[in-house]
């Protein structure tokens, strides 16, 4: 599909992995709303730093990548979407299960025109929806193909980052052999799914779970990691998104203390100001305490944790670069 290998200065070390992010395929999951797509994009930017090329992939037809980068909807085609620091390049691909099935059929059976007729009839939609396991094999199969693709013995991509389905569905999504084995007992799909399954369980793959320091996302993170481990899938890091700086670590502050401080700063010390600020501080401390106990729960998982800062101006391109730099600095 790709015919060019030039344009990336960093080809000299494209076959070397980043020692702190050693996988080739980074699967990024998390509960809906935790910023999965943002983190996946930041990781793709991070791993492209220094003249490398990475591929950012989505598989759920949400066009989340296009929205994030404020570009038109992505086709089923790999195309450059962003430049990374020091001349790197991020490409993106929205994998569509129907297209993937047609591509697959075409590759193995030269279906060509008949494939298009089938699509018109809704047959492809039918085949991919009635057997979710089949759909997932096609999606992960495409991701595997992009990750392992080489030209003249050189990898096209330093790494592939997959903006994956959320924690509630991730194990089933990646556990392709189990799902397809229920449906296809013999035949090429079975062979294909075994290849994909082996790849997803190899050190080539790492599954990172994104969470916020909130109860439900942390609970789902713990559940998902348990499920993934039970299915023998390789777990990478826990990534805490939108972490706030620890403030008032000494604990509560009295009104008298606050009044003196405000006076020293030349601000009003009336009752309303002092009580209002104290109430805000108290709410912050309550939240911080909840966050601390959630952090402790995450620590118990025994997995490496990276914390990404809350972006005060929302997710902008500069914000993504900040997150990318934080990810790259993680050890």
């Amino acid at each position: 599909m790709e015919d060019e290998t030039d344009g990336c200065e960093g080809e000299r070390d494209v076959n070397q992995v980043n020692p702190f992010w050693p996988a080739r395929l980074h699967v990024v999951t998390g509960k809906g709303g935790v910023g999965k797509t943002t983190v996946a994009a930041a990781l793709a930017l991070a791993l492209a730093t220094g003249g490398r090329r990475t591929l950012l992939v989505e598989v759920e037809g949400r066009q989340g990548i296009a929205q994030l980068f404020e570009i038109p909807p992505l086709p089923y085609q790999e195309r450059p979407i962003a430049a990374a620091a020091d001349g790197g390049e991020v490409r993106a691909l929205a994998v569509d299960p129907e297209e993937a099935l047609l591509e697959y059929l075409d590759l193995f059976y030269r279906l060509g025109r008949a494939g298009r007729v089938l699509r018109k009839l809704g047959a492809i939609d039918f085949a991919t929806t009635i057997a979710p396991g089949l759909r997932d094999v096609l999606l992960t199969g495409k991701v595997k193909e992009a990750t392992t693709r080489t030209v003249d013995g050189r990898r096209i991509y330093q790494a592939v980052v997959l903006d994956a389905p959320p924690t509630g569905r991730i194990t089933r999504f990646l556990n392709v052999t189990a799902e397809t084995a229920r449906l296809a007992k013999v035949g090429p799909i079975k062979t294909q799914s075994e290849g994909v399954a082996a790849f997803l369980r190899s050190p080539m793959t790492a599954i990172h779970v994104v969470t916020l320091l909130e109860e439900m996302p942390v609970q789902e993170t713990i559940d998902a990691i348990g499920d993934l481990a039970a299915a023998g899938l390789p777990i990478g890091r826990v990534i805490v998104n939108a972490a706030r700086p620890p403030l008032l670590t000494a604990g509560r502050i009295t009104q008298a203390e606050l009044r003196r401080g405000l006076a020293a700063a030349g601000l009003t010390t009336d009752r309303e100001a002092v009580a209002g600020l104290q109430a805000e501080a108290k709410a912050y401390l309550t939240r911080q305490k909840v966050e601390q106990s959630l952090r402790a729960e995450l620590d118990e998982l025994g997995r490496p944790i990276v914390e990404l800062p809350l972006l005060p101006d929302g997710v902008t391109r500069a914000g993504l670069d900040t997150l990318a730099a934080t990810l790259l600095a993680a050890e």
């Binding site: 000494a250 203390e257 401080g261 020293a264 700063a265 030349g266 600020l277 805000e280 501080a281 912050y284």
Partner: peptide, 20 residues
């Protein structure tokens, strides 16, 4: 105001409340 308190090297907690 928080920066001014930092500079003066006192009332750390008030400075943090102001940042919150």
């Amino acid at each position: 105001a928080a920066a001014a308190l930092d500079q003066a090297g006192e009332h750390d907690s008030t400075a943090e409340v102001l940042r919150i």
